[in-house]
Write a protein that binds this DNA or RNA. Structure first.
Lengths: 337, 337
DNA sequence: CCCACGCCTGGAAGCGGTCCCAGAAACACT
DNA sequence: AGTGTTTCTGGGACCGCTTCCAGGCGTGGG
């Protein structure tokens, strides 16, 4: 037998009764609606305090058709991908943005087909007020699922070839251009690049930035190898590039991890950085400070990205007109270039 | 003007009407309740399909008093702490556990006072069915908030000095003992330890494991320095220990990061690892493979921890009797010991 | 003095489901 | 044919809140 009944939360009716007013009056007080006399307000407020009343979220949601919950969906085939600190940063940013609203964050790892259908259900069942999508590749079914549900949605990062949607993204193109221009300003002319996967929007944009900077400077792109954003991939790409273009004097790697791999390979090949070869990365992860030599790289604020996504979503839910946002990136100079 | 009205989701009433049955009948079909004739079931199922009906989550929640949402709350003073991959792993584990239920995961970063009060509201407002708590230090107000809300709750990691609660935890004590025994088995007798903060349960348990193993082997704990689980802290502690006990021949560091710091200091001091000094870490993070030499360490599965927490919470919500769980740890041998 | 107009108020109809219950229909058995 | 049992059915009362609306009560102007 349980000793004490786990006392039910008081309801609005009970509060109203105790305050000696109608439920509607009590409701008005709680929602700070106009047309409430001072006496009524005070009576209700006292009752609320005395009874420890909290409006039931679910009931309110049913009546207002607003759940007070927004979802962050991370869609990818590999659930392990979520372990990338990237997402943790996004979450920190989102949390900061909703910190002083009464919204809450629902997290959906929609990797498997199962996960996607769960998410689909959630959206159609009106379980959330809006959704933030991340890590979609071009033709992710989620895009259309979300569109079909007719819910406010914002994308983190631009879909590669999607219908026009509202998104928040880092300025990958501008950042890559910045990096490349920096290398050129250093007097390097035989600048090569290690790209990310070209079927991702990020990979493509960073490559385009490199290319544009080279062309604007009257140089020809000196060499390109596709990596996969990982350290191993960067190392492999660097080897290829050294073989094909032994005269290279600078490398723009589209991610810090790839840059780290490249640095290792360069050092093994006896090229000194930055004297022989200057290297710039992208992302400004923690590791950028710990490579040898410390990596000059392009900084992007992932927290800011999360924050802006959430802000934008809140705006959309509130009926605001959407506008896409591109967040600035900036060069962080260390020793590798 | 908007072109087309964003058609409302159909309701159960509409489905029932279309199927030519009562709402109760339709509800029974949806919930696979008994006492439904074949004809009724088929008619309703057809109507559902044709209209694309999905039961409204909120309405159902109100009626059943079950939201279908569980919360994971991470409480800590520093919001940046969440960036630690640890939590991402927990989340992956939790997600795996709820993958084939229709539960969803709400994430609360309750660092600030503001965050805590939001969480408190959520719980009292019956916004979730249960909660998983992480990263509390001893007297975190969350503990009592949760208890007071009378909601199913499970702790990740044992509270340091809390009332008896239900928890899932890695076997920190056993793991530390394992590590220390390994060092002793190697013939080392002057084994020192770098502990985590002793006001954390983890720090305390890992220290106790070290101590017990030493005593069981008839040795006396040779030296102890308190770190803070970080690389810098580990390095500082290692310096202290070298000063105080220049004759040490083995180190058990209570985290891989601290071990990494210690390795650096040892190398700078001209001690070779493992020849002069054997080192064992704890956690088996990615970095353990990349230290020089690769780190022998104690492996714990964080994903499993998350998974078990979620399973346990689901059980509690279902009315099961709670049982705490201690997850096994195991030694991973690399080159440092 | 009467009426129009303002602020407050409580009643009641919702939001979209679940679930209890009484009764109808179908079947088996004396 | 009458009775009992079982299966199926729809009516309706909830869950706890918001919100519309009609009416009560003061005011001030005509």
């Amino acid at each position: 037998m349980v000793a004490a009944t786990p006392r039910r939360q008081p309801t609005l009716d009970e509060v109203a009764e105790r305050a000696g007013v109608s439920r509607s009056a009590a409701s008005r007080v709680i929602n700070k609606a106009p047309h409430v006399s001072r006496a009524t307000r005070e009576a209700v407020e006292r009752a609320i305090k005395e009874m420890g009343y909290r409006p039931n979220r679910t009931a309110r949601a049913l009546a207002t058709r607003q759940t007070g919950i927004i979802a962050l969906a991370v869609s990818h085939d590999d659930p392990e991908l979520f372990a990338d600190p990237f997402f943790a940063q996004v979450i920190v940013g989102v949390s900061a943005a909703i910190e002083d609203t009464d919204l809450h964050l629902l997290l959906c790892l929609a990797s498997s087909g199962r996960g996607r259908s769960r998410l689909m259900n959630l959206l159609h069942a009106r379980g959330v007020d809006g959704i933030m999508l991340m890590a979609l590749h071009g033709d992710d079914p989620l895009t259309s699922i979300v569109a079909q549900a007719g819910l406010p949605a914002v994308h983190g990062g631009r879909p590669l070839h999607g219908e026009p949607q509202w998104f928040v993204d880092s300025d990958n193109l501008g950042g890559a251009r910045l990096a490349t221009e920096h290398l050129i300003a250093l007097g390097r002319t035989r600048v090569v690049t290690i790209t990310g996967q070209m079927f991702t929007q990020v990979g493509e944009a960073r490559y385009r930035g490199y290319r544009e900077a080279m062309i604007m400077a009257g140089l020809v792109p000196h060499g390109t190898a596709e990596g996969d954003f990982t350290e191993a991939g960067g190392a492999a790409a660097m080897k290829t590039l050294l073989d094909l273009h032994p005269d290279l004097d600078a490398v723009f790697a589209a991610s810090d991890k790839m840059a780290a791999g490249a640095l290792r390979v360069l050092s093994d090949a006896g090229r000194s950085v930055p004297a022989d070869v200057a290297v710039v990365g992208f992302d400004d992860l923690d590791i950028a400070e710990r490579t040898d030599p410390p990596l000059t790289t392009v900084h992007q604020s992932i927290q800011a990205l999360g924050k802006e996504m959430a802000r934008m979503l809140i705006g959309l839910i509130g009926g605001q007109e959407p506008t896409s946002i591109v967040l600035p990136t900036r060069l962080v100079r260390r020793d590798s270039a």
